[in-house]
Design a protein around this nucleic acid. Structure first.
Length: 305
DNA sequence: AGCCAGGTCTGCG
DNA sequence: CGCAGACATGGC
């Protein structure tokens, strides 16, 4: 065994799907390389791999892994709690072991500002670009790895976010970073206040709307009652839970609030887990109006002019 | 090529 | 309020 490497035994009654948890779109900095999942957490490079109920890691400690992966949380109890209809039931069967991570609030805040109106592959690139341009070199990896930059590193005056190709989101990132840099402890306070107040506080940041706020609450503050409504969840909910209003486009903020409140009422205090299982099973659930990626057409490369 | 993406903000009526 | 457009960029 290499130095700095540890092994952690998962309890048989506490399932984990490491790969799914790291790749489902709640975190953007994990990559699978040579059988290991590698990601920068805080100031160091973590490597993690799962073989059955055996978790091997380096660059961190067992308590830190347990905390990050929320292994202290009773997943079967949570899944039993949200298992209230056949649709979410299918999602649970497909994605069992998916856990909501405990990620850094600041990094999650910026990540989901970047996550608006784009796709997951590009979000990953934007976050990687921010780290490369403004982060610090990370211990334990090669010199291409960087920690996520702090608020001061991204605040307005330190500018030149333009090189990170964030599009119009760059001013939101800079604006939010400036506020957080100016009020140290602001995010810490958000962890302590009631859900609705925390949500309102997040909504006051530039670039954070209802959907981003709920993602940040769920993934960054581990507020499991948050129910983010994005384009996929809207489709799924309209398909299976709340019929879209007649005649309209069905994608207004009012409609999203309706869906969010339904989700919270229908799934209960762990609505966020239900949301994430539905999101991760979105292709499986694809029905009317849900465009699935579909099978790749192979063997007929497009004509090269 | 063109539609769409883990939406938000702004400026109207 | 509530709604329509704009918005930078790139994945597919």
């Amino acid at each position: 065994m290499l130095p700095g490497m540890g092994v952690l035994r998962l309890r048989d009654d506490q399932p984990l799907d490491l790969a799914l948890s790291l790749s489902c779109g709640q975190a953007f900095r994990w990559e699978q390389r040579e059988g290991w999942w590698e990601g920068v957490v805080g100031a160091s490079l973590w490597k993690v791999r799962q073989e059955g109920n055996r978790l091997t890691y380096s660059g961190t400690t067992a308590p830190a892994v347990r905390r990050y992966l929320a292994l202290d949380e009773d997943l079967p109890v949570i899944l039993a709690s949200i298992d209230r209809d056949p649709v979410v039931h299918r999602s649970i069967e497909a994605c069992r072991g998916l856990r909501i991570l405990r990620q850094d609030p600041w990094e999650t805040l910026i990540s989901f500002i970047c996550a608006t109106n784009t796709n997951i592959p590009r979000i990953r690139k934007m976050i990687a670009s921010l780290a490369r341009c403004f982060g610090s070199r990370v211990t334990g990896g090669d010199d291409s790895l960087y920690s996520f930059p702090g608020p001061e590193d991204l605040s307005g005056s330190c500018g030149d976010l333009g090189t990170c190709r964030l599009g119009y989101r760059d001013r939101y990132v800079a604006g939010t970073a400036t506020i957080v840099a100016e009020y140290p402890g602001l995010l810490d306070r958000i962890t302590e206040i009631p859900f609705d107040q925390a949500r309102a506080a997040l909504l006051s940041f530039p670039g954070v709307g209802p959907k981003a706020a709920d993602c940040i609450l769920l993934f960054g503050f581990h507020r499991l009652e948050a129910f983010p409504v994005d384009v996929w969840i809207r489709r799924i909910m309209h398909e299976y839970y709340v019929p879209p209003p007649h005649g309209t486009k069905g994608s207004s903020e009012k409609e999203d609030r309706r869906i969010r409140e339904f989700g919270r009422a229908h799934f209960g205090v762990y609505a966020g887990y239900a949301q994430e299982y539905l999101f991760c099973a979105r292709e499986l659930l694809g029905g009317e109006g849900i465009r699935s990626p579909g099978p790749r057409i192979s063997g007929t490369p497009p004509a090269r002019r």
